[in-house]
Structure formats: structure tokens, C-alpha cells
């Protein structure tokens, strides 16, 4: 049996070894750096959104431990960290998307313009109109491009007649940089667009209800580099009118688009600093390990 196994490709130790020398094996020590609160500057003056003592549990399992952070006005804050570090979960705290998961429990104080978004009288429907979301996988509705963008305004009754709605759809598509490409195909299905166009359609759909904050959960991870570049450019424009929180796996993307960067590790917020500082001179050992590619 062993003989056969050895002859099969992929089972020999030899074939596993590449020509390039591997980076030195990770040791436990590098992971075992103490996380004691968040270093850097998690707080800003007059924040758009802020969280204090945020814990999130999935049933008995705790996914996020005591996160304290502010999101400033008209800034792009990038959230980075290895898979399963809780950055997406934290993002979903901000518009109460986690409410849709029955076993998920969120604690702590979370505010939008100083207003408690988890207050009893706070309506998640209203909150989600104010805090829009763009998902990892482009998820346009199986409807026409027009209907996709018009969905939110119709849902919330934002326009009173057809021509207003037409204008709003056009404005939203223009802001999302998609109008020129689709202006003759507004009645065609949104699912027929390319991946990058679909994602911009989703952004147009999100901004059609004129939110204050846009949450983006790895918006370009399913896209090619060109589509990614277009969306990154778009984010820069959107920053003028919206506050954006973006979760990303790409550190280059975080460095390119964001003003501040938050590094999550195993459910804890390790470091929040200006993006330049995080990528050139991180304060925390774990951040440095991550951005230098030691793990992640």
C-alpha cells in the first residue's frame, strides 16, 4: 500500500517542495502576542457611527470581543484581518443585518449620529435605509436594471411620480458610474450585466435611497482587477457624500482607498490608525505580522 501511495503524485514529500525557499515556518509565538485593548486611534471627534463594548455571539460561541471604535464622517475606513477574524460580523452589526440570524446576539452601545441604533424604538427598516450595504457577491435582483435601482425608493415611497423616479434612477446610476454603459438597456435584466457592472448596479441600488453610511463587505473580491479599479475609483467619489466602511481581504485595496484602517484578529480589534501609519509603521506586533504576510 505504501508503495502505491508513494508513486501517486502529490503524496510524496518531494513534490510538495517548491524551488523557492519557503518562508520560515510559523511558530506559535508569533500568534501568541497579547491583545490588550485596541492600540492606535480608534476614536475620532464627532463620529458618524461609533461602537462601545461590542460583543457578538453566535449561540454560545463568541465571535467579537469588546470592540470599541468610531467611524468618522465622510471617511473610508477599511477593516482588514485574517479570515474568521470577525470583521464582516462587525460590519453587519452596523446595520443590524445580524438580526436576521436567529442565533446571533449583539451587545454594547452602537450609535449613528449619537442615536442608539439598537434602542427598542429604533426600527431596523429605517436604519437599513440610512445605512446601506453592498455585499461580497454582486446580488442584483432578477429584475430589470431600472427596477433594481428603483427598488429602494419604491419600497420606502421616496418618490411621488414616475418622472421623479426616473431622475432618481438616472442620478443613482450616474453616481455609481454605470449610467453611460446601461442607459439604453434600463429594461434589460440586471443579472445580464458583467460582474463588475452588477456590483456597481448594487452600489447604485444602495445609494438610490440616499443612505448616510455605506457598508461594503469585500465588494471587489469576486471581480477582476479592472472592475476592481473602477469600483475603487468610485468609492473615492462617493466619499464626498457618504461615509464608507469597507471590509477587504486585499491590503493593497485598503491602502489605496481608505483613510483609516482597522485590524481585526480573532474577534478582537487590535489596531486602528491612519492607513499610512498602519501600512508603514504599525503599532502592534500582530498588525505588522499580518501586513508583512507572515500569516493571514
Amino acid at each position: 500500500m505504501n508503495e502505491i501511495l508513494e508513486t501517486l503524485p502529490g503524496t510524496t514529500t518531494q513534490s510538495l517542495q517548491s524551488d523557492e525557499p519557503k518562508p520560515e515556518a510559523k511558530t506559535r509565538d508569533e500568534f501568541d502576542v497579547e491583545i490588550d485593548g485596541t492600540v492606535g486611534q480608534p476614536f475620532v471627534d464627532n463620529p458618524k457611527m461609533s461602537s462601545r463594548n461590542c460583543d457578538v455571539f453566535y449561540a454560545e460561541k463568541q465571535a467579537i470581543f469588546d470592540v470599541n471604535v468610531d467611524i468618522g464622517r465622510n471617511e473610508i475606513i477599511a477593516m482588514i484581518g485574517p479570515s474568521g477574524c470577525g470583521k464582516s460580523t462587525y460590519l453587519r452589526v452596523l446595520n443590524r443585518m445580524n438580526d436576521t440570524i436567529p442565533i446571533c446576539r449583539t451587545t454594547g452601545t452602537h450609535t449613528l449620529d449619537g442615536e442608539d441604533i439598537y434602542a427598542k424604538d429604533q426600527d431596523p427598516v429605517l436604519l437599513r435605509a440610512r445605512v446601506g450595504m453592498v455585499f461580497q457577491k454582486p446580488n442584483p435582483f432578477p429584475k430589470s436594471i431600472y427596477d433594481n435601482v428603483a427598488y429602494g425608493p419604491r419600497l420606502h415611497g421616496l418618490t411621488s411620480n414616475r418622472s421623479e423616479l426616473d431622475d432618481l434612477v438616472e442620478a443613482s446610476l450616474t453616481k455609481a458610474g454605470l449610467f453611460k454603459e446601461v442607459k439604453d438597456d434600463l429594461q434589460k435584466p440586471g443579472t445580464g450585466l458583467s460582474g463588475g457592472q452588477q456590483q456597481r448596479l448594487c452600489i447604485a441600488r444602495a445609494i438610490a435611497v440616499d443612505p448616510e453610511v455605506i457598508l461594503m463587505d469585500e465588494p471587489t473580491s469576486a471581480l477582476d482587477p479592472i472592475a476592481t479599479a473602477i469600483i475603487e475609483e468610485l468609492m473615492d467619489d462617493l466619499k464626498e457624500s457618504y461615509t464608507i466602511a469597507i471590509v477587504t481581504h486585499s491590503m493593497q485595496q485598503a491602502a489605496r482607498v481608505s483613510q483609516r484602517t482597522a485590524y481585526f484578529h480573532l474577534g478582537r480589534l487590535v489596531e486602528v490608525n491612519d492607513t499610512d501609519k498602519v501600512f508603514t509603521n504599525p503599532e502592534h506586533q500582530l498588525t505588522e505580522n499580518y501586513i508583512t504576510g507572515r500569516f493571514g
Binding site: T100, L127, L155, R205, V209
Partner: peptide
């Protein structure tokens, strides 16, 4: 998710 994210 998209619908709920839009506030439906």
C-alpha cells in the same frame, strides 16, 4: 440579504 439590506 439584498432585500433586507435595502430595508425590506
Amino acid at each position: 440579504e439584498a432585500a433586507i439590506g435595502m430595508g425590506a
